[in-house]
Each structure stands twice: as C-alpha cells, then as structure tokens.
Lab assay of single mutants.
Amino acid sequence: MSRESDVEAQQSHGSSACSQPHGSVTQSQGSSSQSQGISSSSTSTMPNSSQSSHSSSGTLSSLETVSTQELYSIPEDQEPEDQEPEEPTPAPWARLWALQDGFANLECVNDNYWFGRDKSCEYCFDEPLLKRTDKYRTYSKKHFRIFREVGPKNSYIAYIEDHSGNGTFVNTELVGKGKRRPLNNNSEIALSLSRNKVFVFFDLTVDDQSVYPKALRDEYIMSKTLGSGACGEVKLAFERKTCKKVAIKIISKRKFAIGSAREADPALNVETEIEILKKLNHPCIIKIKNFFDAEDYYIVLELMEGGELFDKVVGNKRLKEATCKLYFYQMLLAVQYLHENGIIHRDLKPENVLLSSQEEDCLIKITDFGHSKILGETSLMRTLCGTPTYLAPEVLVSVGTAGYNRAVDCWSLGVILFICLSGYPPFSEHRTQVSLKDQITSGKYNFIPEVWAEVSEKALDLVKKLLVVDPKARFTTEEALRHPWLQDEDMKRKFQDLLSEENESTALPQVL
C-alpha cells in the first residue's frame, strides 16, 4: 500500500538533515546492470571481512566470479597478432551492500547512478522477487541517484539526491524531493519508509565518522582530508542543518603536550582565546566558526575552494607581477588587521594563504593565525623552527619566545613576496656552502639577476625593505602599504570589485 501522500506532506515541511535544493538533472540513458558494476546475484546478508577486503582492492568479489566451465583457453599460436591488451577495470570509489532480497550489490565505478523502476536507470528495480513485494509499487520510476562531484583539492564528494514520490531516507532522515545531501561511510539508505532499509553505503575513500566526538558529529558530517601540516590535519565537512561546506582543523593534544602547556602557563585558556579569535572579522582572514574541545581540538573554519598559494608557486613557478601585487596587498591588509588586534601570526607561508577560486584574479585569505593562542608560545615555536624557511632572523637566534615582536610577520611576508615574484625561495638548504640558518640570520638571500630583470624596481625595493635583518629597521605593514609599488588604483579597484562580488555589503578597509 502506498504512503505517498503521508511522505509528500513530510517532504513539504523539509528536513533537518544536511540537504539543499538542487537544479534539474539530465537523465542518464539506460545500460545493462552488469556493465555498471552490479553483481549478477542479489543478497540479503552483509559481507564478511574477506569479501570486503577483496573488493576494496579493486579485484572481483566472490559475488562477481564466473564459473571456469564457461571459459576456455586460447593457445598462444592462435592469439590474433593485432589484439590489444584489455584496459584494467577501474577501482570502485564506493560500494552499496544490499540489505534485502531482490536488490543486488553495487560497485560504484562510474560517477553517476540512477536507481528506480524505469529501465533507463543504471540500477533498475526489475528483479522478479522484488516485483512480488508489497513495497515495489511505492518505488518511483526514478527514485534517487548517487553521484560524486569534484571538491576541494581535486578530491571527490559523494551525494545522494531524492527524486521520489514516497521519499528517500539516509539514516532515517528524509532527504526531500529535489534535494541532495552528502553521503558518508556506513550510511543506511531506506526507500519509501524510513524503516525500509535497502542499502548500506560504503565510501571507500573516507574514514568512519565514529572516531570523532559526538558533539562534533551532531553538527557536522566529516568527509575527506584536505591537507595536513606540522600543526594538524584539515578535513572537509558539512553543516548538517545547511549542507554548507566547512573546513575542520584537528590539532592533536598529545603531539603538542597541550596539557603540560596549560600547567606551565595557567593563564592559557584555550576556550577564552578561541572566543576572541571567533570575533575577528576581516575579508582577508579565514573566519573561525566553531570550536570543540575533546581528546583533540577541532576548529571549524570557513572553507576556501581555490587551494593554497603554495600550489601556484611550487615547482619554480612565478606569478605575474600584477597578480603578485593583488595578492600581496590583501596579505598586508590581513596581517595589519591581526597586528591591530594584538595577534602575531608567526607562521606566514604560502600554505597559509588560501585562494577563493581558481581564477588568477581572486580574493585571498590568511589562515592559521591563532596557533600560539591554542598551542602555547613554546610549543608552537619548537614546531616552526623545524622548517625555518620563512622564519625571521630574530626568531632563530632567540631562546624560547623572548626578543621578537610583530616584525617577524613582515619578514615572512618579504619571503613570500620574493617567491611569488621570482619563482624560487630566497633562502634554501640546497645552497650547501652556507647553512639555512646562517643565510637567514645574515640576510644573504639568493639573488639571480636574469630572473629579477623581469621584475620592476619598485617591487624589488619593497622586497629589500622587508628582508632587513634588524627588526627595528624592517618595514611595518603600514609602511609597506604606503610603498610606491602598491599605489596602484587599478589594483585596488579590482580588489574592491572582487569584494563586491563576494558580498555587496563588504567595504574596502581604510588604508593610510
């Protein structure tokens, strides 16, 4: 008996699950189920560990084997000379395990699969056993689809999209007709009724959600790893209520002995410091949205989908001078704002400069500016000194954290500008005749005249004003913003236009 009217009423009120309206889709043409990776026989039982391990490696599972009696060998002398080797079968990115008779397991190899009674669906509900069930008529011709799209860092995100009359449910929550939600590992998919569980979705590319604290899981769906560094790992996640993407940084307390840091400095109150950081608001710094204190720290951040500045300059790639100017102007505005709010970044580098898009002209935002507030000064500097390429001379020669101030950030900005303009770092371990530390503390950077011949004198002058060993003589952010190279009204107008595109209400910060 159909429950279409009941569920449609529920759909009209929406769902609290991570779902959002989605535009129309072009329906895929039908194809045989076997060619799409559906096993030839149905099963109602969950797999054992041996079955799972075989399939996850990209080899055929026991459900897909063919009797050897149906095959015969071709003698080598009868092999056609022009026969080309077969292409290897792509490894599946996800697996659906059937929970009921009449449904088959599915190895997801393609990027898009339609499910329903219509014969054009890649996964067609046409098993005779299924057709005899009382629920068969409640399934729509095109009930739902599972697909994946390219996300940040060229990774993939799996989604389920509801197109049914009676509802598609993920972990008992209604997706909603015309809406989608991301699928995470071990999600249970039910059709027409929330208790009519048909599939379990296994994402073969992500970790299980159960490793994360419950308070975090209640608000966010964790997904793929976006990156990792000395101070922690960053994962893509989704807000459950809105389906908006965020980035979540995970900082290990054990790695940084944060408990010991608190004992050594009783004034170090991470929760208080995070609340201060959350109040920071500038178009060129990453917004801190939320914070969870569990076995590790979880910092929920605004997501930038254009990648890191590092990706644009790695491998001796240089940027156009006009692009360097647009990016560097924004970096200076961001660091100036942090300094005005009493925050020294201490870890400025291309990896911590994020881009809003893949376009050459785009907004940038500074991230990882609050680590000293979370990890403690000593722990952070011990970590950073392991990779000193961007560290100021006074940091390398000081004991502990004494003896330096916000000028350290201006040195790091000078190193970043040098790399963007030239395509190579000013200080490098590859210069074996002088140690990296000695290069930095003496201010002897690697200047290649033929490379810098293409760079304007004004740009080079600003680099020199920032890479000054004496912090008292080094340019401040205010002085850098007043430098002739940055007195470019076309560049500032472009920045204002980019801000307006992102948010019509965002105004250009005042600069002296």
Rank of each mutant, 00 (worst) to 15 (best):
A9V: 09
L96F: 12
P75D: 14
T89D: 01
H54A: 14
Q29H: 07
N166T: 02
Q83I: 12
E76C: 07
T59D: 06
I221E: 00
K255G: 02
S39V: 14
S19H: 11
F144Q: 00
S260F: 15
V175W: 01
Y139T: 00
S53F: 08
D162Q: 05
C243S: 06
S223F: 08
S120A: 06
V234S: 00
V66G: 09
R132I: 12
K235A: 03
A237G: 11
K141W: 01
S50A: 13
E81V: 09
E233Y: 01
Y220C: 09
I157P: 14
Q83L: 09
S73I: 03
I157D: 07
K142A: 05
Q34G: 05
E107G: 14
G259E: 14
T225Y: 12
D82Q: 08
V211E: 03
K253L: 05
G227R: 01
R137P: 08
E271S: 12
A247C: 15
A91I: 03
S12L: 12
F144E: 01
Y113A: 06
T242L: 07
D265W: 00
N171I: 08
R117S: 01
T68S: 05
D203I: 09
S24V: 02
Y159L: 15
R217V: 01
L96H: 01
V198F: 09
Q34L: 08
F238M: 05
Y159H: 04
W93M: 02
S164Q: 06
K241T: 10
W93V: 01
E127C: 14
T65E: 11
E173F: 13
A158R: 00
S33W: 09
F103I: 15
R254N: 01
L204T: 01
N110P: 02
G176T: 05
D82S: 06
S35M: 08
Y212H: 12
T172A: 04
K255R: 02
A264S: 05
S5M: 08
S16E: 06
L193I: 08
S192N: 10
L96Y: 02
D126H: 10
S28V: 11
K235R: 10
D118S: 14
E271F: 06
S49C: 11
G176M: 13
Y212I: 02
F147R: 11
I160W: 14
V246L: 04
S28D: 13
N110Y: 12
W114H: 11
A190L: 00
H143A: 02
D208G: 02
A267V: 10
F201C: 04
D265R: 12
S19N: 04
W93F: 12
V246F: 11
E271H: 04
G167L: 00
T242K: 04
H163P: 12
T225A: 08
A257V: 06
A261E: 06
H13L: 10
P85S: 10
I74F: 15
S35A: 10
Q78N: 14
D101C: 14
E70P: 13
F256C: 03
V270H: 14
K131P: 13
P128V: 11
S28L: 12
G229P: 00
K241C: 14
S210P: 04
S19D: 10
D203S: 15
I74H: 12
Q209F: 12
P21F: 07
T138S: 11
S260Y: 05
N110V: 10
A91M: 03
K241G: 06
E107L: 15
V66M: 14
E107I: 15
K245S: 09
K135A: 14
K249S: 00
G167D: 00
F256I: 11
D101N: 12
F169T: 02
E149C: 03
E87P: 11
D218G: 07
G102Y: 08
P88T: 06
P47K: 03
K224L: 01
L268N: 06
Y136S: 03
E79D: 15
A267P: 11
R240A: 04
W93S: 01
D134V: 12
L236C: 00
S16K: 03
M46Y: 09
Q34H: 06
E173M: 08
S28I: 15
L226E: 14
A158C: 08
Q29R: 08
D134W: 14
T133Q: 08
N171M: 11
Q209R: 10
H13S: 09
Q29D: 10
V25F: 10
S35Y: 07
D118N: 11
V200E: 10
G116R: 03
L130E: 03
N154W: 14
V150T: 07
G229F: 15
L60S: 03
P47S: 10
S52M: 10
N112L: 14
A247V: 02
K245L: 13
A91H: 13
Q29P: 06
S56G: 05
R254M: 00
M222D: 00
N186C: 03
D77N: 15
N105Q: 08
D126N: 15
Q27S: 12
S252F: 08
L236Q: 04
E173S: 08
Y123C: 13
K142W: 13
S49H: 11
E79T: 14
T272L: 06
V109M: 10
P47T: 07
K135Y: 15
N269S: 06
G23E: 12
G30C: 10
A257D: 03
V246T: 01
S28G: 11
D6L: 05
L226I: 11
P88A: 10
C18M: 09
E64L: 01
C231R: 03
S120D: 06
P47H: 10
S42G: 11
G227N: 13
E122D: 12
K135S: 07
W97G: 10
A237D: 02
E173V: 10
V170S: 14
K142Q: 10
N105C: 02
M46T: 12
S252R: 06
G14L: 05
K235L: 07
R117K: 02
S50H: 02
P266S: 12
Y72R: 12
E127R: 10
I251D: 10
R3G: 13
A158T: 06
E219Q: 08
V198L: 02
N166Y: 02
E122C: 10
E233I: 06
K255V: 05
S187F: 09
S252M: 05
E70C: 07
P182R: 00
E4V: 08
I160G: 04
N105H: 12
W114G: 14
L106R: 15
S50W: 02
I157R: 02
C231D: 07
Q69M: 07
C121N: 06
I258S: 04
S44V: 09
S15L: 07
V211F: 08
F144A: 04
K141T: 03
Y136L: 06
V170Q: 08
Q36L: 14
A230V: 14
S50Q: 04
I38P: 09
A94S: 14
P85W: 08
Y220T: 02
E173C: 15
E84N: 13
F125C: 02
Y139M: 02
V200G: 14
E127D: 07
S32V: 09
D134A: 09
R195V: 00
P152R: 09
E122Q: 11
S42W: 10
K177D: 14
A237L: 04
S28E: 13
E8I: 12
E84Q: 03
K153S: 02
T168F: 00
T43I: 08
Q34P: 11
D118A: 10
S15Y: 10
L226Y: 08
L63S: 07
K135G: 06
S31R: 13
Q34S: 11
P88M: 12
L268M: 14
N269H: 09
Q36Y: 02
R262K: 05
R3K: 07
D218Q: 01
S19G: 11
C231A: 05
E271L: 03
A17R: 13
I251S: 03
I221M: 07
G178W: 12
L226D: 01
V206D: 12
R217I: 06
G259Q: 15
S52A: 08
R254I: 05
S41M: 07
K197R: 02
T45C: 11
I189V: 01
Q29L: 09
C121V: 15
C108F: 05
G227A: 15
V25T: 08
S35P: 09
S15H: 05
G259A: 09
T172G: 03
S28Y: 06
I74C: 13
K235D: 06
E219V: 12
S32R: 08
C108Y: 03
S16Q: 09
R95W: 04
S56Q: 05
Q20E: 09
D118P: 00
I251T: 00
L99G: 04
C18Y: 07
S187N: 01
W93K: 01
V211L: 03
S187I: 08
E161W: 07
G14V: 01
S42A: 12
S67Y: 01
G232E: 01
R195D: 00
Q100G: 10
Q27E: 11
E271G: 11
L129V: 10
S155I: 06
S223C: 01
K142D: 02
